[in-house]
Nucleic acid binder design. Structure first.
Lengths: 385, 385
DNA sequence: CCTAATTAGTTCCGACATAAAACTATTAGG
DNA sequence: CCTAATAGTTTTATGTCGGAACTAATTAGG
């Protein structure tokens, strides 16, 4: 039995477009929405009223700008009207959050995984979902981000970090929780958060790069995420960044994995200083000026800059968002990042604005929640067009 | 005074969508068009009839497949119903073609440029247009591809090869010829040909790389060309491809310009063999197995492969089209191209289909004609949304 | 304080595009 | 020849849209 996602708006298209515009672009007046959607003001009256009556939209005060004429009545959604769960599935734990319609995090919880077989993981997910659902209004949908190849209908084709292949995770979680569940690649989820509610909101083109155990990449062009069948394999992990850099486990010299990942940096600095260190300590040493750590971290920063230059040259993004648990590298080595970025770009090109995220793990969960929100709001699962 | 482009279809949107679908995707039955555009068969009857009456569409026979049921009546446009001119503006000559509505080339002519000041160039363009227009039906519009930064309204902001900046080329040509004229970046034009009538027809994502005096790059994602304000500067000319390669004029070691351009290859082979050669001879020597030429050309091929890998990794294209006057490199060094492509891609990714064009200069003109066709068919200039 | 100008939003109504339903047309296959 | 299947047309009802005329609420300026 398939648990179906409830639909947001009753209508066909235009009313949904109005609701979507207000959801994503915040409180907007009817006239502003009309302009954005290329509709008449008459149409906006017609479309907004049922949405107001249904309680999805509210009038949220007046626009207090000093222009002449009747002031605008701002329309806004009621973000609290719906709750979603977003989860990030990792090798040894599941992290979950509840959010509202705008992906604002309301609560956070985790469950450790004692085993990685699908049944045990689903049990942990269901328990976490049940616990998160306590004390909040009904959960509309669950989104789960998984690193790996995700197929339509919630099937995990391949997730090496769990040693999974062809697991119907979506169906299993729906069966265990009774709540509609969307499974999505973790980077797609992260990118969709930025797309709808983050640094990419309202932009036509942007890219996402995450640093951590691996190097992640996401791309939105023409206001739509770019993906192919290979998405989730790891497109840029073995990107060559430094012809004289260290060698990765698969024999690539100076590839992204060999110089940009947490473990690569930690290992290089530990080796240089002759003692085991954590990633955090390695970056602290570099920040405080320890020469060997500084050099290794700067090399990594330069590599990151060159990766960003490649992305900028080939995809022409309006901004790039940097995230992931290892993102502090971008701050500690920001000058090296800039240097690498400039080295591989034409000096006449416009500067590339960067947005640096905190690197906290709940950012992945928020992304997963956005995938659930999108499914609900758009009326169809993102993997089923 | 502004010369306006005539409009293709009288209607508002749906009829244009039908005409466009038939133009691009060849003869289609009403039912097929209805499926593609998500319309009812009733709507298709309604929409197709005026287009048939206006002479833009014709019924082009029946679909002779052995299925049960009434056979499909194929709709097709009459490509001969309109003529366009496409031109490629080069440093010392202008190359022009006439085409039909599907960008099939009907005639070709050139004019040498004796000077590069705008007035002299416009005079040559007008003369060429007049000559091309003789003996064909009325020209609907002219498209001109120019290497450099092109602004809206036919203004060439910067075209170094002519030493131009801020030239209102479109207006000048319209004034001289009386024919609506569209100015576009040459790579955008080349890419739009592939998009509508070439290897990218019907695809969601593809890239274009041209080899020659410079290295060109074009990208279509989600069925729309990707461009930003910097488009035309040369995004990938100084891309680093070989850390041990030769140095370009601006001091980059092993950049695309230093190893992939015609002149770089010609120069390297000439130097290695101690005698001046042409590009063609250099490639011939490599093809016939001359060791030094073979090595240089293979290095270039490997560099090209790595460039293609970068594009594939970051933009996930369904195919890449290779063109430009130096494109024979891709054929002569095809094994090296494959090797470079494999080296920088995850082995699990699907193979990247390549389309290799002939490299003739009229391919650029055909692209320029497509820009004119698009302006006419879509009812607005591509640079004026 | 009063009026004109301006902008926001509503109501009413006609224009038009759409699809559903019932129809005709043309084929394959028994 | 009859039936099923598919293509395409005609008729008609529905619903969405925007234009026009309206009300509402404000500022600017005398």
């Amino acid at each position: 039995m398939r648990i179906t996602t409830p639909r947001w708006t009753p209508g066909n298209g235009a009313d949904r477009a109005v609701a979507l515009e207000v959801l994503i672009h915040g409180p907007l007046s009817r006239s502003e929405v009309a302009r954005r959607l290329d509709l008449s003001s008459a149409s906006l009256t017609r479309l907004a009223n049922p949405l107001l009556e249904s309680g999805l939209l509210v009038e949220a005060g007046e626009q207090a700008d000093g222009r002449v004429g009747r002031p605008q009545q701002l329309l806004d959604i009621v973000p609290e009207s719906r709750r979603f769960i977003g989860m990030k599935l990792m090798a040894d734990e599941v992290l979950g959050v509840t959010t509202d319609l705008r992906a604002n995090v309301k609560a956070t919880e985790t469950r450790r995984l004692t085993a990685t077989d699908p049944e045990a993981v689903v049990a942990a997910i269901a328990e976490l979902a049940k616990s998160l659902a306590r004390g909040t209004p009904d959960i509309t949908a669950i989104g789960i981000g998984v690193g790996g190849l995700i197929e339509a209908h919630g099937v995990v084709r391949s997730a090496p970090f769990l040693k999974w292949s062809d697991v119907s995770l979506g169906q299993m979680v729906e069966a265990a929780t009774g709540i509609p569940t969307i499974i999505e690649n973790d980077l797609v989820a992260f990118t969709e958060y930025e797309h709808w509610f983050g640094a990419g909101r309202g932009l036509d083109r942007f890219a996402v790069v995450t640093l951590g155990a691996g190097i992640g990449y996401g791309l939105v062009i023409h206001d739509e995420i770019v993906r192919n069948d290979d998405y989730g394999i790891g497109l840029i992990g073995h990107w060559p960044l430094d012809p004289f850099g260290p060698v990765c486990s698969e024999g690539h010299r100076g590839c992204a994995k060999a110089i940009l990942t947490d473990s690569a940096i930690t290992q290089s600095v530990s080796q240089a200083l002759g003692k085991p260190l954590t990633y955090k300590t390695a970056l602290n040493l570099a920040a405080s000026g320890e020469p060997a750590a500084r050099r290794i971290v700067d090399d990594a920063g330069r590599g990151l800059g060159r990766l960003l230059a490649a992305i900028a040259n080939l995809t022409m993004p309006q901004t790039v968002v940097l995230g992931g648990e290892g993102v502090r590298l971008a701050a500690v080595a920001s000058e090296a990042v800039d240097a690498g970025l400039r080295a591989d770009r034409d000096p006449r090109t416009a500067a590339l604005p960067l947005t640096i995220r905190s690197g906290e793990n709940i950012e992945w969960c928020r992304g997963a929640a956005v995938v659930a929100i999108q499914t609900f709001v758009l009326g169809h699962r993102s993997d089923e067009p």
